[in-house]
Write a protein that binds this DNA or RNA. Structure first.
Lengths: 198, 198
DNA sequence: GTCTATATTCGGATAGAC
DNA sequence: GTCTATCCGAATATAGAC
């Protein structure tokens, strides 16, 4: 258990991870429907059989990626909730994280943001995006109770607060914004917070 | 020319319009890739041949819808620009229009918002979404010159101002917001404007 | 200019050897 | 658990009658 008997050059056991990484890259770059399982096979340099051994099909791969990424984000969200106490600090930290993730892993961000509209969620997973979304709303609602955020419809407050930053992320992913998005963090957050605070 | 010789019950000459309407409905409901030309044929109750007589293929239909809708929006935008003089009134009117369009023609709105991410724009039409987008930015920039809007990066101002409302539109189209979105116009606009004004 | 019938391509998925 | 070869359905697009 301590040492592997044969050191296969690159990826020994986690073919699964390789498949997910490769598929994410291709899905983000060319889209789910413009990516065939053969494309994944070629890019990852493995066989069709191997892919179908690990996943039941293309949709299953897409869903695995989605749940994977969503889980990671949710972990971060919970971490933020525990490390900060005010709505201001929490929400700001969320935006910081979303921005840095956009710069560091644009494909992942792109995938998450468009997953539900990319038509491959043919069944189940109802509003999964609501995981992180629900936490944002929760932060806002608590901020309203504490008086940091003006009283109003929570949905309006949440969209007003995070809508600007998210819109900017879209522009960055679409290539309209050329610079790293993190460089616009301060003014963007300033506007966002001003929109719902006193 | 004044009277048609034969009054064919429903759509006499504009099969084209029928195809576009039908395709928009299906594309919005089920997505571009989950809609076959056969589906359009059935739903519109016409023949495959007729469809291919009017359009070179499925992509061409999608593009025609896109350009059609974008053109209409741009007309409205220009109208707003001419009828109002302050950035406040212009931008507010844009949001009013986007909201009422969301309530009245959700499929059209959904289509426009996701067209570029639906993977069927395999060629050309670079950032067509920039038509309306550019006009919004223009309104904001003029508002900055006139002093209505605080000086800052124009992109940040534009996303801050319209990001909240657009986000809310997404929630409405996704079914998360149950009520008509127009009912939330006032508080949403209040927040949006506050985020960039003095 | 609308129709039916059909050709052709493509891609998801399976079978079974190793 | 990884591989190759292959099947089969689906969907785009065309041909040609009316």
């Amino acid at each position: 258990m301590s040492r592997r008997p044969e050191t296969k050059s690159s990826t020994p056991e986690d073919t699964r991870a390789l498949i997910l990484e490769t598929a994410l890259r291709l899905f983000s770059r060319n889209g789910f429907f413009n990516t065939s399982v053969q494309d994944i096979r070629k890019e990852a340099d493995i066989s069709i059989g191997s892919i179908y051994h690990h996943f039941s099909g293309k949709e299953a791969i897409a869903k695995a990626i989605y749940l994977d990424l969503l889980g990671k984000i949710d972990v971060t969200m919970r971490d933020i909730l525990s490390r900060h106490s005010t709505a201001h600090d929490r929400c700001r930290e969320v935006v910081v994280h979303l921005f840095s993730m956009t710069d560091a892993f644009p494909e992942a961000m792109e995938y998450i943001l468009h997953a539900r509209h990319r038509e491959f969620m043919t069944d189940g997973i109802p509003i999964c995006s609501s995981g992180p979304f629900a936490r944002m709303k929760q932060m806002v609602e608590e901020g309203m109770e504490s008086g940091e955020i003006l009283p109003m419809d929570p949905l309006v407050a949440t969209t007003s607060l995070f809508g600007g930053p998210i819109r900017l992320i879209h522009l960055r992913l679409d290539g309209i914004l050329k610079e790293e998005i993190s460089s616009l963090l301060e003014p963007t957050w300033l506007c966002a917070w001003k929109s719902v605070s006193k």
